[in-house]
């Protein structure tokens, strides 16, 4: 099966720091691909580089089409949904306005799906997003990506700072979403990765040090410890 997203020789330099040093991997067209690695390895930067949010060199191909040179908005319009690490919601806008802003093209926009998964967003439609709890903000961030017919979701640490009960809810949502659209997921929570990820990519100091099946990495405690420093 041909991969949906192919990244090759991705470099990012910010100031005098060489943050990504030739990242390359492929994301299959189904399931969840988890990007793992220690803090500061370059996981978040990899997602931002794919989306053109940080200046980069290298190749990014979506379904065979080279999109590396496009501006961010054009890359996203090719069918990528992005939920960033800090959630990227607009605090001064209402929940409904946050969702409306994310509508792309003529639609139809899948509010039914979003409101079915997150009924709370419908109840709190008129509330300012800045006053939501962390978990609710994450719902807005993920809900935005589900609104459009995306070909892939890029989700950055969706469970960071959330209570265990909410983490389970988010995992449920991602698992369900992954049945319809492939997800490139950055995540530190290995229990979550174990539960929903099919493939893994391990990054260390700006380079890829391991790719493969999620199950085979995480069932090997020695390899996990070596690559991630944890069991």
């Amino acid at each position: 099966m041909t991969p949906l997203l192919e990244i090759a020789d991705l470099h990012v330099r910010i100031g005098s720091s060489h943050i990504l040093q030739g990242i390359g991997f492929a994301v299959p067209a189904t399931g969840v691909t988890a990007v793992l690695g220690r803090n500061g390895a370059g996981k978040t930067t990899t997602l931002k580089a794919v989306l053109g949010i940080v200046p980069k060199t290298g190749s990014v191909r979506l379904d065979g089409e080279e999109i590396g040179a496009l501006p961010t908005h054009a890359i996203v319009r090719r069918g990528l949904g992005y939920a960033p690490e800090d959630r990227g919601i607009f605090a001064g806008l209402t929940v409904t306005e946050n969702l409306r802003l994310a509508e792309r093209g003529r639609g139809p926009h899948r509010y039914d799906l979003v409101y079915e998964m997150f009924p709370e967003l419908k109840q709190r439609g008129a509330q300012r997003a800045g006053t939501l709890s962390g978990g609710q903000q994450q719902m807005v961030a993920i809900g935005r990506t589900l609104l459009n017919d995306n070909r892939m979701l890029l989700v950055d640490e969706p469970t960071k700072g959330l209570a265990p009960k909410i983490v389970t809810e988010v995992a449920d949502v991602l698992e369900r979403a992954a049945r319809e659209v492939p997800i490139l997921l950055v995540e530190q929570n290995l229990a979550l990765v174990r539960r929903i990820a099919d493939h893994v990519v391990v990054i260390e100091q700006g380079t890829v040090v391991h790719t493969g099946e999620a199950a085979s990495l995480l069932s090997d405690p020695d390899l996990t410890r070596e690559l991630l420093g944890v069991a």
Binding site: G15, S16, S17, I19, N39, G40, A41, G42, Q205, G206
Partner: peptide, 13 residues
Amino acid sequence: MTTTADASETATA
């Protein structure tokens, strides 16, 4: 990464 960044910036100074 943070440590490398700082080290290299000090070097540029």
